Simulated assay, not measured.
Amino acid sequence: MNAIVFDYLVVQGMSDAAVAFAQATGISQSIDQGMIQERMDIRKAVEDGRVEEAVRRVNELDPEILDTNPPLLFHLFLLRLIELIRAERVDDALEFATLELAPRGAQNPEFLADLERTMALLAFPNIVKDDLSSDPAYAPIAKLMSRDQRVKVAMELNAAILESQGQGMESKLIGLVRLMSWGEKRLNKAGLTVDDDRGRQWADAVLREV
C-alpha cells in the first residue's frame, strides 16, 4: 500500500511529498525531482493555455513524445487554435488551421470531426461571453472554450511524458479505484457484495495483483 501511495505522489508531481513519504515509510525509492518539476511545468503551461511553450518544452525534453503520437500533437494544435480564437486573433487562427491542422485532418480522417467542431468557434467567438453554453445546440462547441478542455489535453500530455519515462500512464491508485469500481458493478450484477465470501475472494485477488 505504501508503494501505491508513493506512486500516486510521483505521478501527480508531488515530489517533495513523495520524498518525505519514502523517508517516513522506509521505501527504497529514488526519484528525479527535476524531471518531475519539468513535467509539472509543462502540464501547467497547457492548463494556462500556453500551448506553444508546452510543445517547445516537450520537444526539448524528448522529441519522440510528439513525433510518435499524432493524436496527442493534433489535440495540442487544436488547443492552440482554440486559444487563438479566444484571443480574437482570427487571421492567425485561420492561418494556423490552414497550415498545421488541415493537412493533418486530410491525412487522418478521424481528426476531421474535432477540427470541424473547433472551426465552428470562429462563427461564435463570444460563445462563453454570450452565455450560450447552457443551450444544448451550442454546448459541444462551448465546452471547447472551458478550462476542462485544457485540463483534458494537459492530462493526455502528462500521461505521454510518463510513458516515455518508463512509468505508468496513470497512478496505480487511480487504476485500482477504477478496477474496484468495475468489480463492484460486476459483483452487484451477479447479486454479490464484497461482504460475501466470493466477493471478498475477488477483492483479495485484485489487491494481490497490484
Score class of each variant (00 low, 15 high):
48 D>W: 05
143 K>V: 08
175 G>S: 12
139 A>H: 03
29 Q>T: 01
14 M>S: 06
70 P>G: 07
51 V>T: 14
89 R>S: 08
48 D>G: 01
191 G>F: 04
88 E>L: 12
21 F>L: 07
63 P>E: 00
161 I>T: 04
197 D>C: 05
171 S>R: 09
30 S>M: 02
194 V>M: 06
125 P>R: 13
178 R>G: 01
71 P>C: 14
72 L>I: 14
137 A>Q: 13
13 G>I: 08
76 L>S: 05
5 V>P: 00
20 A>I: 02
71 P>N: 11
137 A>R: 15
129 K>H: 15
195 D>H: 03
63 P>Y: 00
82 I>T: 11
12 Q>D: 14
207 L>D: 03
28 S>T: 09
167 Q>C: 04
113 A>Y: 10
77 F>R: 15
205 A>T: 09
145 M>I: 08
44 K>A: 15
100 E>T: 10
118 T>F: 09
36 I>K: 00
140 P>D: 01
176 L>T: 05
7 D>C: 04
203 A>C: 07
209 E>N: 02
119 M>C: 10
71 P>R: 09
142 A>M: 08
89 R>M: 07
144 L>I: 13
109 P>A: 15
5 V>R: 11
155 M>P: 01
21 F>V: 09
152 K>F: 06
165 Q>I: 06
180 M>V: 15
196 D>W: 10
3 A>W: 03
24 A>F: 04
90 V>P: 02
42 I>N: 01
45 A>E: 14
70 P>R: 08
33 Q>E: 09
140 P>T: 14
29 Q>L: 00
128 V>D: 15
78 L>W: 04
21 F>Y: 14
154 A>R: 09
2 N>T: 09
132 L>T: 15
165 Q>Y: 07
171 S>K: 07
72 L>G: 14
11 V>Q: 09
9 L>V: 01
35 M>T: 03
4 I>M: 07
20 A>Q: 14
185 K>N: 03
165 Q>S: 12
69 N>S: 08
8 Y>H: 14
166 G>W: 06
168 G>I: 06
111 F>C: 13
188 N>T: 07
104 R>I: 09
73 L>Q: 00
188 N>C: 03
142 A>L: 12
92 D>I: 06
180 M>P: 00
40 M>Q: 15
199 G>Q: 11
124 F>G: 04
187 L>R: 06
187 L>K: 05
105 G>K: 08
2 N>P: 01
32 D>S: 12
97 A>N: 09
151 V>C: 04
3 A>Y: 02
206 V>W: 06
64 E>M: 06
16 D>V: 09
